[in-house]
Each structure stands twice: as structure tokens, then as C-alpha cells.
Design a protein around this nucleic acid. Sequence first.
DNA 1: GTGAAAGCGCTAACAT
DNA 2: ATGTTAGCGCTTTCAC
Lengths: 349, 349
Amino acid sequence: MDAVTIYDIADKAKVSIATVSRAFNNSSRVSARTRDRILGIAQELGYQPHASARSLAKRKSNLVSAIIPMLTSYFFLEVLHGVQEKISESEYDLLVYSAPRMENVDGMLENGLNRGRSAGALLFSSPLNPERIKRLEQYSNPVVLVDLYHEKFDSVATDNEQGGYLAASHLLEKGYRRIGLLAANLDSVPSQQRMNGYCRAHREWDIALDERLVVSTDDDQFHGFTEEAGYALMSSLLDKDVAIDSVFAVSDIQALGARRAIEDRGMAVPGDIALVGFDDIMISRYVELTTLRQPMNEMGRMAAELLLERLRGNEKPVMHKILAPTLVERTSSGSRRTGTDLSKSSHNI
Amino acid sequence: MDAVTIYDIADKAKVSIATVSRAFNNSSRVSARTRDRILGIAQELGYQPHASARSLAKRKSNLVSAIIPMLTSYFFLEVLHGVQEKISESEYDLLVYSAPRMENVDGMLENGLNRGRSAGALLFSSPLNPERIKRLEQYSNPVVLVDLYHEKFDSVATDNEQGGYLAASHLLEKGYRRIGLLAANLDSVPSQQRMNGYCRAHREWDIALDERLVVSTDDDQFHGFTEEAGYALMSSLLDKDVAIDSVFAVSDIQALGARRAIEDRGMAVPGDIALVGFDDIMISRYVELTTLRQPMNEMGRMAAELLLERLRGNEKPVMHKILAPTLVERTSSGSRRTGTDLSKSSHNI
DNA sequence: GTGAAAGCGCTAACAT
DNA sequence: ATGTTAGCGCTTTCAC
């Protein structure tokens, strides 16, 4: 029992394969009658068009690749979901590449950017070294970067620097002056940017930065965006025995680990140490973590929309969409203090 | 600047395209020397094999479709992750279909089971009506069902009935006698099965089932596996003004909604009403929800492994893998009572 | 070990 | 409105 092709349908309908093809691509050059007849016979025979043959002949794939190094995290799930929503409204299907380690990105690029594989690609949160950039440039189809920036490619990302700035400012406004910073792997650009924002806030408040308050991880798994890394980082910070009254973790998942580390030492959040995260993953709502919300779903939708635009042939210059993070204040950053109390009272533990 | 094909390589290497093809498929019928030469030239020219042309000629796709109606939930993310892990070790890539509503399943089947599109498919948690079964049967490639059962197809699923049984038994052992049941949409088979387990536990304990304690939703979105549905269901249960001392929600996400409903009425978990969920999603650990853990990652890995087996040509009879859920006891189901206190003391609110 | 040639199932000129 | 035919880029007999 071999698969049924347009030849079978053509035979049975007493027409040529070209007509069958036309019927399926609803070309205006088939009479309604024959089209209906053909479609009927196809139905009857259980015909299924052959995707590969189709894209080969059309010189165009109807797949879009999403390359996501860390799909384990809720953040990416939400973004992906936004992507799905948009893509599923289109003629395209979504091919998802994901892997637990950053090194695998190259392998994924290799496959996902295969010629004839997909019509375009979305690349998530991967550090762009020259080799990867070269590969992206060789790829003749449109690429949109998500949670990532490079001048040569369309992108959509959160304003991470501003987010870091808002996080630190929030704590400063509340009167905290010894704000620890839990960064991720130093290779992570978003982490760096959030850190820059943290520094800017300190400059604006004219508060000297104590480098001992800033810690980062060597962990490569998910670039250190893990609960374990957060726990380890917070622990190392507490071990230093340097005064500290609050902490900004560059991601919620790390903040969760940090909170555990704090509580494991018999201290409380926010009583002893106030805590602010970044992302606003689902859990944060339940554990009352103050954080900077990234519009995840929106990011996904916008990225997909940008890509679809390019696939429709839009030749506009490279576009960069920067979305603003918003402060979501919950109890982990301490009870709200009276608005204008900017006294530099210290909050040491 | 047209894409480079094997013809270009053949020209430059002064060999036929057949030899180039052999070189890439590391056939034993090319001399090591010419192969190396060809590979070198290919590298130099930036050659990329054309995926569609390849699968067309080979009569075999290297894609595997995963059809997931509700990828929004953490449960599916974890399962998908297990799938990814296995799949990425193989020669296949993963095509992901997902949509927010159950109705969309048919559209996804239409695309995902396209001939020539994928070499096999994983179908998640979708009610199987005769039409869908017919479509699966027409599909000439292997299919593995996940979180789903049908005699004709390979499957991997949790023992939901047993899970429901364990959940209810756990509460009964603790002395609760008025156990509310928050089901999902009645079309959901897992929900039904968990309910059956709940009933069996009551029979074994010889406790009459009070039907007023059992509520289900009409919600179709995600089959009622949402926080909102949990909230609404719990509220309706409390409105009934029927004695109740504990609740088994057929999913953690619903349990979260239920907890909110309980707390919104000024009652506490587990003080006034004990709570047990199902799944063990990530949040549950943080909010101390007692639940029945499904081995999500494992399910994904096993499903992918089963599919890969079939793709390797394994012709063994249909296989069904049933995984056991495990009780994860946290504080939401009340403090542990002394083991053998089976007195039928009532725990009314 | 290598080449010639015939497809894989479809689309898209070009005819009629 | 329909048919003929030449590909799309690759794999795979079958010769040599």
C-alpha cells in the first residue's frame, strides 16, 4: 500500500497532475467544478500532500526554526508561547531546537539553519561570537534575535540596563544602601546589562560601589540562571561577612535560590535582607518576590511578527525592538516606606 | 548569489554528483582521499545540504512531530524537555505543534501528520475521538501517545487511577472524611481516571460518596486545567454549604486556584481545609503543596525512546508504559497524624 | 571506486 | 481551463 500522490488523483479524475496541483493551490486557473471533483477524490483517497516535495519544488520551506538554548526556564516557555501564537496564525509551522548547554548552540545553528530546512529563524539568548555571526550571515533567510542584540539582525529584547537601574533604584528609594548583586555567568549579556543599570543607579544616588557586594558565577549551565547558582552566590556573599541589607538577583530563579540561602542561615526576607529579582516568572507571584517583569509573551509575539514580515518580503532596514521592563512590587523588597524618606540610614544586618 | 549545491562541488572536484553524495553519506564506496577532498571543497564553498531534497530522495524525513495542545503548562514543558533530551541525541529534529484550545488539535494533526513532513509523531493528552483515531491510522508512520491511552498505539502515561487513589487514601489516612473533588473538564480522561481512584479509595474505606463533594468544570480552555477553573470550582463547592474538611484537586494548577478561593473566604490551608494536588509542578515545592508527582521528564524520555525504537524498525507489538505517580507530602495536607488513628472523627469546617 | 541516469512528489513556466 | 514538460537538489540503482 503505497502513499497516494497527485498522479493517483490525476488518473482517477482524468486530468493532468498540473490541474491537480492547481486545485490544491487554489489557483484561479481551474474551473470550480473540476476543483471540487479533484478535492473530492483526494479526500476519498486520503491524499496528503508531501511536505518535502512541496518545499523543494517551491524553493521555499514552510517551517520556521526557533533556537532556544534554555527552554527549561519558564521565561523561555512564555516567550515561545507568544511565538507559537503568532506563528500558528500563519502558514508556517514551528521547529524547536533546544539544549541544556550553551555549547550546543552551534550544533543547533548547524541544523536549524540548514538550507531548505526552514524559511527563517528565531535565535534566543545566545552569546554571539564572530563564528556564529558568520553562520547567521551565511544563512540566506531572515533571522530575528530574541533577548539578544546585534546591529546586523532584527531583534527584540528587554531594556535590561534600565531594568537593572529600576531594581537598584527601587531598593535605594526604600532606604537600602548595601545592595548585593547576584549576577549570572559573565558571558551573559543580559546579566551584564542589568549589572550596568545597577551601577548607574548607584552613580545617580552618588553612592560608592562596593565591589565586594557583586558576585558572579562560573557556572555554564544555563549561564548560571539556576536556583543552585543563586544559592551558591548568595552563600558566598554571606560568607564574606560584609555588611549587606538587600540583594538584587539578575533573575527570579536565582533570587529563589538566594532566598533559600538566606533562610538557611536563619535570616528572613525582607526582614534581614530585602530581595529583588528579574523576569517575573510564574512562581514569583506565589512567593511574593518583587521583580522586574519582562513582557515575555509580547516579546515572542513581536519576534514572530517581525520574522513573518520579513518572510512576506518586507525589505525595511534592520529593526530593533526594545521593550521596557516594569517593576512589580511585592513583599520581598520590604514594606513600603514613606515616599520621600531618602535619609541615608544604614540597614546593615 | 545562488545557493551552492552538490553540482558546484562536483564541478570543482572533477567528480560526479554521485560521488559527492557518497562522500556526505560516508558510503564505503568512496576512497578516503576523494572524500576528504570533497569535504574540503564543500567547507570552502560553504555548502549546506538541502533538507527537503534530502528527505524527498531518501523517502524519509528527519523530523519528529510533537503535538501538544497545552504547552502553556509546566507539566508539558517538563515532558517536552525529556523528549528533547532523547531526540537531540538522535539524528532527528523536533517539530513542535501547540495551541491553546483542544479544538485546534485537529488542525495540528493535519499539519504534523503530513506525509513527508515527519518520520513519526508524539501526541500529547488529546481526547481521541473516532475521527482522530482514523487520522492516526492513516498516518503511515509510528505514533506514540503521551499522557494518553489507546490500545492501537504505543503509549506512555501515568497511572492516573492509582494516583487518585493515593491522593484520597492519603487524606483518609489522616482522618479526613469529607473530601471534596475538583475535577477538570469531563472530557479529560486523566481527570476521569483520577476521579475513579478517588472513588475506589472511598469504597475501600467503606465511606459513602457524597456526590455534592464532586465538582467539575465546563471550561474548555486547557480542559479546565487552569488556576481560574480551580478557583471557580472551589468557590462553587464552598457555596454549597456542605461539610468539607479537605480537597483533592486533579491538578496542581487547580489546587493553586482552590487555595486562593479558600483564603479569600478567610479560611486557611490546611487548618480549615487540607489540600492535595496532582502533577508536582515547580511551584508546588515553593508553596508547600502536597501532591502526586508524575515523572514528567521520564515520561518524555520514554516516549521519545519508544518512538526512536519504532523508527529504527522495531516491529514488536504495541507497547504501553504505565508510570507510577508518587505521593509528595508537604504541609498543605495537614500535619502528620499518628499512624493508626483511623477514628471517624469529622473534620467539618 | 566512480559515473550515468532515473527517480522522489511536487510546482511553474510554456503551450494549447 | 487544461496538458506537457522541465526542473527543485538530492539518493540510489546499475553499469563499468
